[in-house]
């Protein structure tokens, strides 16, 4: 009895295996193998990048680098730390997000809830897709074109003689917002689209108009989608290099312009972690490769933290109806 009992499931499992082997053709199995191989390869690449940077980063990163300003020097020991690039990354991210978030949410609401005239809506959609696909260097050059105009002088680093360089946190932040915008719009639209129609109708059925429905029901429901899109946009800004080099000057230290606090920094030039890594790695001038590794590691940590944050909010804030 006992042996019979234990044998039956084994038999069943075995026979299922045989059938499965019969169903899969050679082509399918080759495809499956390739899929497995590429998947594992991808994991290997991701892990090796992370581990390599982590090893190097831990090796060179110390508190001193984090809190001292970068200096010009011919020896690696004289080049100071990465405080200014870190502040630059922070400022640029805040500025770019502050511009992109409200505009992006507004565009997403208009596209999903109104979408009229439909021709204009289609143009806006196409424009956002263009922004996703546009090379950031092209956007950066476009930004330079605008901010070099003399009427943009209040927002830009200017020389003694009045020449407008078109470079500042304002200029870089404005173009960075274009890079973050599609992510904000995408995240918000997805969240709004996932709210069932009957939830909107429930609000209308209580005698509410569209404006209060959007404000009191739809936006709170879409909160996590908006946060996700905004955070993804932030990650894009943090990882962007071309815009920093062209529009922020990628100067060694923050170079404030003018006398008003805060505003002077925003009007001046600076650098970010990305431009710092570029300039100090062997790819650029290569003065301080160790500090480039340290900065790259900090960059990686920030982006990983943002991604974890995105996972967390999209898991926690999801509402399901019915």
């Amino acid at each position: 009895m006992v042996s019979g009992k234990s044998r039956r499931p084994i038999k069943a499992r075995g026979s299922r295996k045989v059938r499965a082997r019969g169903v899969w053709s050679i082509g399918d199995r080759v495809g499956l193998t390739i899929a497995w191989a590429t998947g594992i390869f991808l994991c290997l690449v991701a892990f090796s990048v992370t581990i390599y940077l982590a090893l190097k980063g831990v090796q060179y990163l110390n508190l001193d680098i984090l809190i001292s300003r970068p200096e010009a020097g011919t020896e690696q020991s004289e080049t100071g730390g990465i405080l200014d690039p870190m502040i630059g990354t922070l400022l640029l991210t805040i500025l770019g997000t502050a511009i992109a978030a409200p505009i992006g949410v507004g565009i997403a609401i208009w596209l999903t809830e109104y979408g009229r005239p439909s021709l204009l809506a289609r143009f806006v959609e196409a424009g956002i897709e263009m922004l996703v696909g546009a090379p950031s260097i092209a956007l950066a050059i476009f930004g330079l074109l605008i901010f070099q105009n003399s009427f943009m002088a209040p927002f830009s680093f200017t020389a003694e003689g009045g020449a407008v360089f078109g470079r500042s946190f304002f200029a870089a932040g404005a173009i960075m917002s274009l890079i973050a915008l599609p992510f904000v719009v995408g995240g918000t639209r997805e969240a709004l689209n996932s709210i069932p129609k009957h939830v909107r109708e429930a609000s209308y059925a209580l005698g509410k108009d569209q404006a209060s429905t959007i404000r009191r029901v739809l936006l709170p429901s879409a909160r996590s989608g908006i946060a996700t899109g905004t955070t993804l946009g932030m990650a894009q800004i943090i990882g962007e290099t071309a815009v920093v080099v062209v529009l922020l000057g990628a100067s060694l230290q923050l170079a404030p312009e003018g006398a008003i606090p805060v505003l002077d920094v925003l009007k001046g030039t600076g650098s970010t972690l990305t431009s710092y890594v570029y300039q100090n790695s062997p790819a650029g001038e290569g003065k301080a490769p160790e500090k480039a590794y340290a900065a790259a590691f900090v960059l990686l940590l920030i982006v990983i933290a943002l991604n974890l944050f995105v996972n967390q909010i999209s898991k926690r804030g999801r509402h399901t109806w019915g």
């Binding site: 069932p196 009957h198 429930a202 209580l206």
Partner: peptide, 16 residues
């Protein structure tokens, strides 16, 4: 009108 004529839907749909 909609304040005077309320409605309940197929799926429960409380607001978040």
């Amino acid at each position: 009108l909609r304040k005077k004529v309320g409605m309940l839907f197929q799926q429960p749909n409380p607001f978040p």
